[in-house]
């Protein structure tokens, strides 16, 4: 009876998965949950692709999930709770808020389920995290800032579009840039506005920046969505050849913009590698008991128009129009 029910439900489960167009899931020994901030964002989608690749290679039954929207912390907590009920062998978590997810990490600790964070950290505290896999955001943005300074020849007015105030990622990215800009006498940061990772808000903020500082030489988006908003604003002002615009994350639409010459640079955080490495580290821990390093750093790279090659796009499975 129970077996029948399980078969029935797994059949339904398969049908549902099939419906959603994901790869078929095979019955596996190891189960893992990969929880991100927002599956709609290509950044995390790509991370999921890397994670799925690792799962396929290692024979892991992987669940890749997120809350409805980035910012819905309560929603992400609910997702973690739901995943914990399934008693996975490990959880990879991209926390929306460094503090808010601590109680859930503690809950996993109590259940003996190891937690690995990726991309964004959980704050230090009572929650025990096995390792953190990701970029050094601060270093990565410092690198980008140096590239900008070099491009501007050491002088010019710069504006920054920040992510959510209070998000640790936003803070690291901002600090990385400010380290470099503050160290360069010729660079003046004329505006630093929180556009909440959002394209429309990035557009509006950039319009305001262009109004207030017509001679701004560079606008840096802390992610590509905001940078693309800046592209629209600068285009509208007819200043595309005067203003340097850079973003971060190398999402597909940003690559198109790079190719078209609208966007000048973006950071490829290689998030597929973050996803891949996180799953792999979890696997090593669970299967072989290998303790991972305290941090697994995935290096980032700055991309400009000529880096958007067919080979690169094929490697990421992206088709640009």
């Amino acid at each position: 009876m129970k077996i029948m029910k399980q078969i029935a439900s797994s059949v339904v489960g398969l049908a549902v998965v099939g419906l959603m167009g994901s790869a078929p899931v095979f019955a596996q020994d190891m189960k893992m949950s990969f929880i991100v901030k927002d599956m709609t964002n290509p950044y995390y989608w790509r991370m999921g692709e890397g994670a799925k690749k690792a799962a396929a290679e290692l024979g892991i039954d992987l669940t890749f999930v997120s809350a409805k929207v980035n910012g819905d912390i309560e929603g992400q907590i609910a997702v973690v709770e739901t995943e914990l009920v399934k008693s996975p062998d490990a959880i990879v978590l991209v926390p929306m808020n460094g503090t808010a997810l601590i109680p859930k990490v503690m809950e996993a600790n109590n259940l003996g389920i190891p937690v690995i964070t990726a991309d964004t950290r959980v704050d230090d505290g009572p929650g025990k995290v096995e390792t953190f896999v990701g970029l050094d955001e601060r270093e990565s943005f410092a690198g980008m800032a140096e590239w900008v300074v070099e491009k501007l020849g050491g002088t010019g007015k710069v504006a920054i579009l920040e992510g959510f105030r209070g998000s640790s990622t936003a803070e690291l990215r901002l600090n990385g840039m400010m380290d470099v800009f503050n160290a360069n006498e010729g660079i003046e940061v004329v505006a630093s506005i929180a556009a909440d990772w959002d394209r429309e808000k990035g557009l509006k903020a950039s319009e305001d920046i262009l109004q207030a500082h017509p001679d701004v030489a560079a606008i840096i988006g802390s992610n590509d969505q905001m940078a693309l908003g800046a592209v629209q604003a600068v285009k509208g002002a007819g200043k595309l050849d005067q203003v340097l615009i850079v973003g971060d994350d190398a999402i597909p639409s940003a690559l198109s913009a790079l190719k078209a010459g609208d966007l000048d640079a973006t950071i490829d955080g290689n998030t597929d590698r973050v996803g891949y490495e996180a799953v792999k580290a979890a696997y090593e821990l669970v299967a072989n008991g290998t303790k991972p390093d305290a941090m697994i750093t995935v290096p980032s790279s700055i991309m400009i128009d000529k880096d958007v090659t067919q080979a690169y796009l094929d490697g990421r499975g992206i088709e640009l129009e």
Binding site: G71, D72, I73, E74, I77, N97, G98, T99, A100, I102, P103, F164, G166
Partner: peptide, 17 residues
């Protein structure tokens, strides 16, 4: 209850709730 659940008070919490 929210503060208990989150152990934090992000000012952007509960948008659209």
């Amino acid at each position: 209850v929210m503060v208990g659940r989150l152990a934090a008070t992000p000012p952007n919490v509960a948008q659209g709730i």
